[in-house]
């Protein structure tokens, strides 16, 4: 899962350049590694025992399971942690305000259209949606009409 998805609601990295492209970029990867490195020291402290490693891993797993359950049980929580999809192109028309707020431009949409649908022009696109995962999905005109 790309970095942008989990962090999008957590406000810092969300809707950054990676939001336009759900692939993990080199910078995303680097960021992930460095953040993990920085957090690892604080999580482990001076205790390098196997017991501590297992306990830390268990704690993180438990946190993940609990948040998964809360997201399933309370849709409101899922909205906050995973955000909601945003329609960027509606009936073939760009919605400039939403593009700007999401830091996405027409090129990103065309890029996604080429990659996922083999489309080359804006007028072939009926809908473009910025998904919760941070990727852009494209609905071509033919399939929705």
């Amino acid at each position: 899962m790309p970095l942008s998805s989990t962090s999008s609601s957590w406000c810092f990295c969300g809707s950054s350049a990676s939001a336009a492209c759900p692939d993990v970029t080199t910078f995303d990867f680097l960021l992930l590694l460095l953040v993990a490195q920085a957090a690892q020291q604080a999580l482990l402290g001076d205790d390098f025992s196997l017991t501590n490693a297992v306990l830390v891993a268990l704690t993180l797993l438990a946190a993940e399971r609990v948040s998964d359950y809360l997201q399933w049980r309370f849709p409101r929580v899922a909205k906050v942690t995973q955000s909601v999809p945003v329609v960027l192109v509606e009936n073939g028309r760009l919605i400039p305000e939403r593009l700007a707020k999401s830091h996405i431009d027409e090129d990103d949409i065309l890029n996604a259209a080429r990659k996922t649908q083999g489309l080359s022009r804006m007028d072939q696109i009926d809908y473009a949606v910025l998904e919760r995962s941070g990727g852009i999905s494209i609905l071509p005109k033919s399939t929705t009409q």
Binding site: S9, S83, P85, V86, K101
Partner: peptide
């Protein structure tokens, strides 16, 4: 025509918080 569980009220709030 298209089912998208959009919520622009929430989205705007998220952008603001962001």
């Amino acid at each position: 025509r298209v089912t998208i569980e959009e919520d622009m009220v929430f989205q705007r709030r998220e952008w603001l918080v962001q």
